[in-house]
């Protein structure tokens, strides 16, 4: 067994162990099992210079999303910057989403992120070209690490969690995630992207509280709190290997969209050649937060067979490979 620092931290607290024992957010009980099916749309986009807005519009319409009059928060995955790889949601994807949600009649569209590692969020946004390529970026952007906050009752075994008002007041949060492997969770997609909604000014840099609670459990809890959401996963160029920071670029050429985040993430896993049934947070979310079974996902757009490309997995996750 090879556990590193972040993995053993949850094991180190007796109180947390007790909390895990009482957790009811895992597999759905019969009374809260979610029926029906969910639509997920996969559209091809060979490069970031494609007409991404057009492709997004297609996906959003396929999923039947209506944002007229709503306050929309676009939540990209902006973590760190390394010119040698592709850590963040590409700026052209964020710019396209801004254009699309404005065109669909949203009352307000803002961009918000709370990077987990770097304290100077605007400098990070500049390195990722967000400030130079997204019109009026500074006036549209909220640093969620340093926003005003409110308490939300009930987060795992914690009595409460403080969350940014800009996220709590949004009618819809659009998770503009990056398709990446993750060296502790297996894959980081639209649900894991919600870690950036947790304010550093309360929990620090990194947001160690989420690792204390448990990464998988925190992913599920945040997805439970922010149910009014939509996912657009940037899989045009993803990251394989030692993600989410130190992996290598993996061209896939897709955008994956849907209103059911577990369904979107399960679909992304299948595209990446990862068995979603092995990804713990998807197991925990399955049925009570969304649908992950392939047979119950209404696959629209490109077929999975057409776009699947196996991502390189580091040793602890090689057994996650989809047959």
């Amino acid at each position: 067994m090879n556990i590193n620092r972040r993995e053993f931290l949850p094991l180190a607290g007796a109180g947390l162990l007790a909390g895990v024992a009482g957790f009811e957010g895992g597999k759905a009980s019969p009374k809260n099992r979610r029926g029906g099916s969910s639509a997920v749309t996969v559209v091809k986009a060979k490069s970031y210079s494609d007409d991404l807005a057009q492709q997004m519009l297609r996906g959003i319409r396929e999923c039947g999303l209506d944002v007229r009059g709503q306050k929309v928060l676009l939540k990209p995955n902006l973590v760190e910057f390394d010119p040698a790889t592709c850590i963040n949601t590409e700026v052209s994807v964020v710019a396209a989403a801004l254009e699309v949600f404005q065109s669909l009649g949203a009352a307000e569209v803002v961009i918000g992120e709370g990077p987990g590692h770097r304290r100077d969020t605007y400098a990070l946004a500049e390195m990722a070209r967000y400030r130079s390529e997204i019109p009026k970026f500074d006036s549209r952007f909220v640093d969620l690490n340093r926003d005003d906050v409110s308490s939300v009752q009930g987060f795992a075994d914690r009595g409460e969690i403080y969350l940014p008002n800009s996220a709590l007041r949004a009618d819809l949060i659009v998770s503009l995630a990056k398709m990446k492997t993750h060296h502790w969770a297996g894959a980081t997609l639209s649900m894991k992207n919600f870690f950036g909604l947790v304010p550093g000014c309360v929990y620090g840099w990194p947001k160690n509280e989420l690792h204390q609670v448990g990464i998988d459990r925190s992913i599920v809890e945040l997805s439970r709190i922010f149910r009014r959401s939509f996912a657009i996963v940037d899989g045009i160029v993803g990251m394989e290997g030692n993600g989410p920071i130190q992996g290598t670029p993996k061209p896939v050429g897709v955008l994956v969209m849907g209103r059911d985040l577990p369904a979107v993430d399960a679909t992304c896993c299948r595209i990446m050649g990862i068995d979603p049934g092995r990804v713990q947070y998807l197991q925990m979310a399955s049925d009570n937060l969304g649908i992950t079974e392939e047979a119950r996902i209404q696959q629209r757009g490109e077929s999975l067979r057409e776009v699947r490309t196996n991502f390189d997995l580091i040793a602890p996750f090689r057994q996650y490979r989809l047959a």
Binding site: M1, N2, I3, N4, R5, E7, F8, L9, L11, A12, G13, A14, G15, V202, Y203, G204, W205, N208, E209, H211, Q212
Partner: peptide
């Protein structure tokens, strides 16, 4: 508990656990 895990090789913390710093908030690293 963490130090005991490290001692028997259950964890590989990549740092010296006998040395303690300060956390952002209580009950964290």
């Amino acid at each position: 508990l963490a130090r005991a895990f490290a001692k028997v090789g259950l964890i590989h913390p990549e740092r010296n656990l006998s040395l303690t710093g300060w956390p952002w908030k209580p009950n964290s690293a």
